[in-house]
């Protein structure tokens, strides 16, 4: 999928952050997926899922992100792996700033592993971004998150992608949510 658009500060932050991840696999999920495709609302944090890493693997990534100009605003280097392993997101912002920030989580739930495995590529102004399948995002927001903001995000995606949504994927992801829960 290709998308050529005027970039926002949020887009630039995301592009810089995922570039710093290097070869670490990732998938962008939740609000940013809707915002990327035009949803007009503010958002201070972006949700990203990465595979479960060992402590040494995660600390190596932590150091790479630090060298690239990002810093954790919620945990120090020594406690970060313990936090993220306990399913607490670690938030990274550009050094000296708090907004926007990237909420990094390990893929510990079944659905987050599906999002990572089935991720799709968006060429944003010729730079690749990996995002969750749109069908999974819509269902997750409607059936799991359910806040007004999430229902609105899902409705936005339904309309923008109404000619491109896969009925087969909607059925399959719906069944997975039913079976494995949120």
């Amino acid at each position: 999928m290709k998308l050529d658009r005027e970039l926002s500060e949020l887009d630039r932050f995301v592009l810089d952050f995922v570039a710093a991840l290097g070869k670490t696999s990732y998938v962008l999920v939740s609000g940013y997926v809707s915002i990327l495709f035009g949803r007009s609302r503010s958002s201070e944090d972006i949700n990203i899922i990465i595979p479960v890493l060992t402590k040494s693997g995660f600390l190596a990534l932590f150091d790479v992100l630090t060298a690239a100009g990002f810093e954790s605003i919620t945990a120090g280097r020594e406690t970060a792996h313990e936090y993220i392993s306990a399913k607490t997101a670690i938030q990274f912002a550009r050094k000296g700033q708090v907004l926007p920030n990237m909420e990094v989580k390990f893929a510990t739930t079944y659905l987050s592993q599906v999002a990572l495995k089935d991720r799709i590529t968006v060429e944003l102004n010729n730079r690749p971004l990996f995002i969750s399948p749109i069908e999974l995002q819509i269902l997750y927001k409607q059936r799991c998150l359910k806040s007004d903001k999430d229902i609105e995000d899902a409705r936005h995606l339904e309309i923008v992608f109404e000619r491109a949504l896969s009925a087969e994927k909607l059925k399959r992801y719906g069944a997975l949510i039913e079976l494995h829960g949120c």
Binding site: L3, D4, R5, E6, L7, S8, E9, L10, I35, F37, G38, R39, S40, R41, S42, S43, E44, Q97, V98, L99, P100, R155, H156, E158, I159, V160, E162
Partner: peptide, 28 residues
Amino acid sequence: FWARFVRDNPPWIWSKQQNIVIDSQFPS
């Protein structure tokens, strides 16, 4: 209404308007 506008117009048109909202929160 906004989603239909996004669907029916090229990204360079809607992104300019969207960015007014997105960028208004930065820098914090």
